[in-house]
Design a protein around this nucleic acid. Sequence first.
DNA 1: TAAGAATATAACTAAGTTAGTTATTATTAT
DNA 2: ATAATAATAACTAACTTAGTTATATTCTTA
Lengths: 137, 137
Amino acid sequence: MITKKAEYAIIILTELASNPPGTTVTSKEIAFRRSIPVNLVVQLLAVLKEAGWTEGTRGPAGGIRLITDPEKINLREVVEAADGPMGITRCLFSSAPCRDQKHCSLRGIWSRAQQEMLKVLEEVNIKDLVEAAALEA
Amino acid sequence: MITKKAEYAIIILTELASNPPGTTVTSKEIAFRRSIPVNLVVQLLAVLKEAGWTEGTRGPAGGIRLITDPEKINLREVVEAADGPMGITRCLFSSAPCRDQKHCSLRGIWSRAQQEMLKVLEEVNIKDLVEAAALEA
DNA sequence: TAAGAATATAACTAAGTTAGTTATTATTAT
DNA sequence: ATAATAATAACTAACTTAGTTATATTCTTA
């Protein structure tokens, strides 16, 4: 399951990427503009920083800015940064296959299904989203 | 998330389909052969019956039998019967799009990703699994 | 240098989900 | 009748999700 946090992370990156490069935005502003609880924004900014996509400046007049080309951040990466590694089934989380190998022709099928899903997410990046939003406006 | 119940449901159908057509098997036997908690087997048999795939005979010498061609039951159907309609994101469960249409270019992407995943599951049926298991043996 | 503004981190909570258990009822062959 | 079996429903412990609350740390500017 892709959680709301993952969606929020994507939205935050999109917000940052929709300003001129180098612009800093405060977490409060992000929260306000995108209607995300401030505390969640703060939590997620830690994740984005950890991933190396953003940088923060403290103190008055501080804020967050994107330090990665938004075209180089795809949705799979963001989702996995926010939610941890993806698994459409619990069995895909454990590296070991089920005890009962015999009956587990399923693992391969789950894995294929998941890969097809991830492929779609990999094909979309943050820049795409910014552009899509621009078209709507 | 595809739950364990969905996996169990698939395994139960596979077990039934791997016996000669018309054979009845008791829930205890299914549970024992496939190492599934008896009570869960019972719960899931209700689902399979509801879906019209199986039929039960009560009383001594009773049991469950498959009344549908295993080739006509695909994994997507079984997963959705056991877990309810699939949604890789909460937003795909609600028919209404987010309040904030503007920022929700995401919905379409989630939906595409999910469809690709489901396509894989639709391409595999219970008979396929029985045959795959037969090869391994 | 002290105060205010911001990031950063951690602990906590309510609601919902999952996986499984327990208990009860209904049906049928012997 | 009774024992074996399916069918149904209610309950529970552990976990996850989404969000809140509280506190610590750092930087800037007045």
